[in-house]
Simulated scan of single mutants.
Amino acid sequence: MLTSGRKGLEASARGTTVLLAALVLASCASGEPEAKIEHLCNVADASEEEALLRGILRADDYTTDINNRTSRVVEGLERNLRDIGPAKETLSTSMCAYKPTPRAGSDRARFEFGWVPRTSKDAEPLLSGGGRFDANGAFGESNYFQTRLFVRCDMPGDLAEPSKAAWLYARASYSFNIGRTDIDQAAKDRQTALAYLMARRVTDALGCENKPLEKPPVVKPAPTP
């Protein structure tokens, strides 16, 4: 599914209005509830996410690829947590990709999520040139083209026990930075803050009972172990 930034959204608004009106009429006639397009990828105008995203993309506008709706993200993560093994991270579930406009090849900021056992080496630093960070108890590392964030997510019900032995991870990749030499610590911190805010949407959707990312993102360098 593809949506766009402010300019593209305004351009598609009229068609969306007509479509929604048709859906409402159809639902009234059939007694079915109104159809909803539910996803975690919308970036509101004048929000912190928008400011970070535009700064990271270095673009005035962008388009949005919606890889999975909210229900698919939650279902995939819950299924993977039930099946998680003792030593290796689960396959990631893709959520969104944001592309600068005008487009330049495969440039994008992409966000995906999964689980990793707390005893696994997959949660240890592995990025070339990466700097470790702490963000309100979440932790990870960030370099010029990727951020890896790990956070405790206490799941309800039958997933409570497996969630105690795993970290929820967010992986953000910034392909437009590959080959650049001007990505300083401030740029890495912006990338980390955006990954934190996108991960908050997932922890809210999952219903993490400890509300791990409720506070505003405050990114601090973590001490070297």
Rank of each mutant, 00 (worst) to 15 (best):
W115S: 04
C208P: 00
D107V: 04
R152E: 14
E50H: 04
T192L: 04
P102D: 08
T181C: 02
G140F: 06
L25R: 13
E141F: 01
R118Y: 00
T63Y: 01
G31R: 05
L81C: 06
L23G: 13
A193D: 02
S120P: 08
L159Q: 08
K220R: 15
I66S: 04
T203C: 00
D60E: 15
E32I: 01
D45V: 12
N177C: 03
V24L: 14
M95N: 04
D65T: 06
T101S: 14
W115M: 05
D134E: 12
F176A: 14
V74E: 07
P216N: 04
Y169A: 02
D107G: 13
D65M: 08
G76Y: 05
L19H: 13
E50D: 11
V219I: 15
A170T: 07
L126S: 12
G207V: 00
G55F: 08
R148K: 13
L2G: 07
A44N: 10
G105S: 09
G137R: 01
L20Q: 13
A59P: 05
M155Y: 08
S142N: 10
Y169I: 01
K215S: 08
D184Q: 08
E209L: 15
A26D: 14
F176H: 15
F150A: 06
P156T: 03
P223D: 12
L81K: 04
R14V: 14
N136R: 09
P100R: 03
L40C: 07
Y169D: 02
K36S: 13
L127R: 07
